[in-house]
């Protein structure tokens, strides 16, 4: 059996609570992040992603405390992201018990941060998250600060550079698909997956179980991330995994 495709619930955390945005705005509450993580872990989620969407200094401290509680309670790998700007942020979060960190805006501002994380902690801890939008000219452009600021970086070029610098995985969120629930950006994902020597995590667009099948088969994704469909019980992870296995996709049950 080949390596299992991974299902990854993503928890956006603000002031110690899980929230979920639609198209990057209008946040809704979805519960205690540690309890929710335990629930997903018991349902055989393969990994968890916790994103700190608080900006304040106090919020950062609350988030680090939460990471400690997650590490003490959950026996599957989890990554953390949001507000990671320098090595000492990485050190703090790994020390709190996170397995991996994801960096986004900071990596575009200072690409050398990727090299530094890979050198000091190993590529396996470094996820480079990319938010990108497909424009009318057919090109994907990368965005900063949760999709607020457009850059001239093109998706594939930036993903390749990140991999060359030592990223261990690419987490690609399509801003066109995020929150819309009509499936993942499989064409772009397949291109990424075929061009990169590292795993690609699909994000943005999960609405039904078939969307997951398609991102593994058509998008050639190594993992699929989703938030609201799991938080609001629209899709249960055990049902999803049984469905995927019936469809011939290797998943851990």
């Amino acid at each position: 059996m080949p390596l299992a495709k991974r299902i990854i619930p993503c928890l956006d955390v603000k002031d110690g609570q899980t929230v979920k945005g639609t198209n990057f705005i209008n946040l809704r509450q979805a519960g205690d992040p540690v309890e929710l993580g335990k629930k997903y872990s018991s349902e055989n989620a393969d990994e968890l992603v916790y994103l700190d969407i608080t900006a304040s200094h106090e919020g950062r401290k609350t988030f680090t405390d939460m990471v400690r509680r997650v590490a003490a309670n959950i026996s599957i790998p989890f990554s953390v992201g949001g507000g990671i700007n320098e090595l000492k942020d990485v050190d703090r979060l790994l020390n709190a018990g996170a397995d991996k960190v994801s960096i986004n805006s900071a990596a575009i501002h200072r690409p050398h941060l990727i090299d530094d994380i890979a050198y000091h902690f190993g590529s396996q801890v470094c996820i480079v998250a990319i938010d990108a939008k497909l424009e009318e000219n057919g090109q994907w452009y990368c965005y900063l600060n949760g999709g607020r600021i457009r850059t001239d970086h093109q998706l594939l070029d930036w993903a390749k550079e990140a991999a060359d610098r030592g990223a261990g995985e690419i987490l690609f969120t399509s801003m066109n698909h995020d929150g819309v629930k009509h499936g993942f950006a499989n064409e772009a994902l397949a291109q990424l997956s075929e061009s990169l020597p590292i795993p690609v995590i699909a994000s943005g667009g999960a609405g039904c179980m078939e969307d997951f099948k398609n991102t593994f088969l058509v998008g050639k994704s190594d993992a699929a991330l989703a938030a609201s469909v799991f938080h609001y019980n629209e899709i249960s992870i055990p049902d999803l995994k049984h469905y995927l296995r019936r469809e011939g996709i290797n998943v851990r049950i």
């Binding site: 390596l3 795993p199 190594d222």
Partner: peptide, 8 residues
């Protein structure tokens, strides 16, 4: 892909 990463 290398590293071999994930559930096997």
């Amino acid at each position: 892909k290398i590293p071999h990463m994930g559930w096997d």
